[in-house]
Amino acid sequence: MLVIKNLQASIEDKQILKGIDLTVKPGEVHAIMGPNGSGKSTLSAVLTGNPAYTVTGGSVEFYGKDLLALSPEDRAHEGLFLSFQYPVEIPGVSMVNFMRTALNEKRKYFGQEPLSAADFLKIMREKRSIVQLDNKLASRAVNEGFSGGEKKRNEIFQMAMLEPKLSILDETDSGLDIDALRIVASGVNTLKSKDNATIVITHYQRLLDYIKPDFVHVLYKGRIVMSAGPELALELEEKGYDWIKEQVDSQQ
C-alpha cells in the first residue's frame, strides 16, 4: 500500500531525511525506532503533509497514488492517519463537532451524503468504548485540559472513527502509564485487520510488547540503517543504539 523511495526532506534548510526507503503492505505492523533526532517524527510529518517541511527528493506512493501531491486532508481521506506525539489542543471546538466535520468531509470526498446526527452519535458511542473514552471527554473541546493519557486515548479514538488504511503512531507510548498503555495498545490491536497497516514510531521496546511488529527498522541520521524482525527491538532494548551508531559512522 505504501512505497517510499529515497525520500528526502528538510525544515528551514536543514536536511533531516536523507533518503528513506520503506515498503508497507496491508496487514503489516512496522516499528520504526532510533535515537533522538534521527528523523522519526519528521518522517511522520512529511508523510501526512505538514507544511513546515519541504520534500527535497524521492517519492511516496500510497495505493498507487502520488501521496506527496495530495493535500493533508486528501491524504486523510485516502486512508492515512497520524496519531500525534503531542496532540494539539483546540479550545472552543468540541470533540463532537470536530469528529462530525471530519467524518462528513470524508463522506463528501467520496460523494456520500452527510451522516445524520443520530447515526453519527451511534458511531461515536461505539468507537468510544474501544479506548474507554469517557462521554464527558467527548463533549469537551478537542484535547483541552485532557491528561497525557486521555490525549493519547483520544488519538486512538479518532483513528477508530476515521478507519484509516495506514496508521502512523508517533511515540504514542510517551507520557503513558502502564494502564493507559494497555488501553491504547488494545485499542490499536482491536482496530487491526488484514486490510490495514500500522507504523509504530517509538523509542522503547515497551510498546512493542503490546503491539507486536512484523518488522523493526532503525532510523539514524535521516536514513533507515537497519531492518529486521521483532527480535531487533529486543536487542536494541538490551544494547542501546550506540553499536549501530558506531557501525554507521565508521562506514561513512
Partner: peptide, 8 residues
C-alpha cells in the same frame, strides 16, 4: 494542520 490530518 492537526485538523487537516483528520480530513478537515
Amino acid at each position: 494542520f492537526y485538523m487537516r490530518t483528520r480530513g478537515i
